[in-house]
């Protein structure tokens, strides 16, 4: 642990400011609370929002897991883990169920979260209405008036053009029947996990200087139409080429020797855990 820095990198004033914003965010689910967003030793847009939330929350007894698009070992995840560990000395884990704080970019882990965990999502663009309205003052007014016809129109246009809703990730959701919210670029597959989640979910956008939250057991509904219901990605009849799991979110890869398409768990720690348990049972040699 590097003692030249404050515990958890920030000075106490910075933490307090983030903490106050976070508490208001929890009190108003889905509403984007502006915050100061301090300079960080990583670039804005590279997870600074999530990192600031993590640093404001973390204590000596926490166990941290950081993932980047399902992977515990990608550069972004590794560097964030290093920074937090160097300034706090907390234990780092890859096992989802061992972690008390999980910072993630673009995925919600496969292992269901429990009430003692907090999921922190990094958000590049927190404003779900930004796609069709560039002005912050106008989108704020839309939120104030619950004027979300544009959000539905955006999906409607996709249906007209392509026959289905084409949001690959970041499919907008309605939180607690009040705010339309960007769930961060998680795949549609993960959207239902936000509804009545057991764990508190915090979302932080460092570049855009916003934090927002979904408390546990909060109604989160993905926007859709009666005749075009929301559908998560399906991986029916697909199986992980490494661990044999089904019904999880897969990466689609090309096997270079055969040229065929193969599937592999996107959540690496889930895949390794499954592999290990299969091996312990004597399944794979």
């Amino acid at each position: 642990m590097n003692t030249a820095y404050n515990f958890a990198f920030f000075d106490e004033g910075s933490k307090r400011e983030i903490r106050r914003a976070t508490l208001k965010a929890i009190a108003i689910p889905g509403y984007q609370v502006p915050f100061a967003s301090r300079e960080m030793p990583i670039g804005r847009g590279w997870g600074t929002g999530g990192l600031q939330l993590t640093l404001s929350l973390i204590g000596k007894t926490d166990v941290l897991k950081v993932i980047d698009q399902g992977s515990d070992e990608s550069v972004n995840a590794v560097n964030i883990k290093k920074l937090v560990r160097d300034t706090t000395g907390v234990e780092i884990t890859e096992l989802t169920r061992e972690a008390t704080l999980i910072q993630s970019r673009h995925r919600i882990p496969e292992v269901p979260l429990n009430k003692d965990q907090i999921l922190i999502l990094q958000v590049p663009i927190p404003e779900p209405l930004r796609f069709y309205e560039p002005q912050e003052s106008v989108t704020k007014k839309h939120h104030a008036e619950k004027e979300y016809s544009g959000a539905w129109l955006m999906l409607f246009e996709q249906i007209i053009k392509y026959g289905s809703m084409t949001t690959g990730a970041d499919h907008p959701v309605m939180v607690h029947d009040r705010y339309v919210m960007a769930p961060s670029p998680i795949p549609r597959f993960d959207n239902p996990k936000m509804n009545h989640s057991e764990a508190l979910i915090l979302l932080g956008a460092g570049r855009e200087k916003k934090v927002y939250a979904i408390p546990p057991y909060t109604k989160v509904v993905s926007l859709d139409f009666h005749d075009y219901p929301f559908e998560p990605e399906t991986f029916q009849d697909k199986q992980c080429r490494l661990c044999g799991s089904t019904g999880v979110f897969f990466d689609e890869l090309v096997d270079e020797t055969t040229g065929g398409t193969v599937y592999q768990c996107n959540d690496t720690s889930y895949c390794i855990e499954t592999l290990n348990s299969v091996e312990a049972l004597g399944g794979v040699k």
Partner: peptide
């Protein structure tokens, strides 16, 4: 703070 977060959420 963590206890306040737990109590509020």
């Amino acid at each position: 703070y963590r206890k306040v977060v737990n109590a509020t959420s």
